[in-house]
Nucleic acid binder design. Structure first.
Lengths: 152, 152
DNA sequence: TTTTTTGCAAATGGTTTGCATCCTT
DNA sequence: AAGGATGCAAACCATTTGCAAAAAA
């Protein structure tokens, strides 16, 4: 858990645009969730968000969180990461940069890394196959340095 | 569904070694599953395998299939691919080559592609982070050419 | 006022598991 | 023998969904 931060207006604007252009409405619940996901800089699961929001005094139901997270992902503000148990984790975008993840199978830690060359290659593959990419999954599951030390 | 094919002995040998070195036993059920996954060259889910095995006259329970698939994946003979619904799909290895996937969000089709440069870059990232990779996930979700034509 | 959204609680469904029995080694 | 494996059916549990009430446009 990290320090709370305020949200940049451009993110609110981006979400508002996404919703409007898809015939959805910007409700107070959606806005609260949006603000909350930018209030901290770590990875989280739907349930984490629920708990954190309740602690921070917001009142949003679990169902609404589960319904809103995919919207935020589709709007491009959130990135979904799937762990070894196939559970969804999320993180908000950092300055619109793509990045991938190393996921530790032992401690669950998620390490980010950036590799623009990989992104470029992936885009090239899509062009070759006339495939319209919506989402890139780039995850490496394995053991982080600390957990290797602890002997599996 | 494609034509049945027989399994190369080296795969049986590889699985046997994996099991032995981990204190597991090679049972007739595990061997039947191993043979079955190499009998066809397409992607499948646990349930598909169950149905197909029953059609082909094998008798293996759903539980055993669910317990065996991860063993085959860990032994390196199977690759797991996760679709948009977070369901596991599998495919047997083709001559030990790594490859990645384009997954259509509309028709569910899975297209394979090979991109050795991406693999090399991923390995480099692991080295940098002293991360011991066990499994690479390289999936691009989006729309295949045909489904783009059909207008989403 | 028309359409979407919310919250609740119940349902979902791929996957996992407890346990008695069976099979490998 | 001894320990792992199987099959069955029940349990899991993150996520989804039906529906009536509430809010946005």
């Amino acid at each position: 858990m990290e320090k709370r931060k305020s949200i940049h207006p451009k993110f609110v604007e981006k979400f508002r645009e996404y919703l409007k252009s898809n015939g959805f409405k910007l409700t107070s619940e959606r806005k609260a969730i949006l603000e909350q996901i930018f209030a901290y800089d770590d990875h989280f699961q739907a349930e984490d968000l629920l708990v954190r929001m309740r602690q921070d005094g917001y009142s949003v139901s679990r169902a609404t969180i589960y319904r809103t997270l995919p919207l935020l992902a589709k709007s491009g503000l959130l990135t979904e990461v799937i762990d070894a148990q196939k559970h969804s984790h999320y993180e908000h975008i950092h300055a619109l940069q793509q990045h991938a993840h190393l996921i530790c199978l032992r401690c669950g830690k998620i390490i980010e890394f950036r590799e623009p060359e990989i992104n470029a290659l992936q885009e090239a593959v899509c062009q070759t196959h006339k495939f319209r990419p919506m989402k890139y999954r780039n995850e490496i599951l394995g053991y982080c340095f600390e957990c290797q030390m602890d002997e599996i």
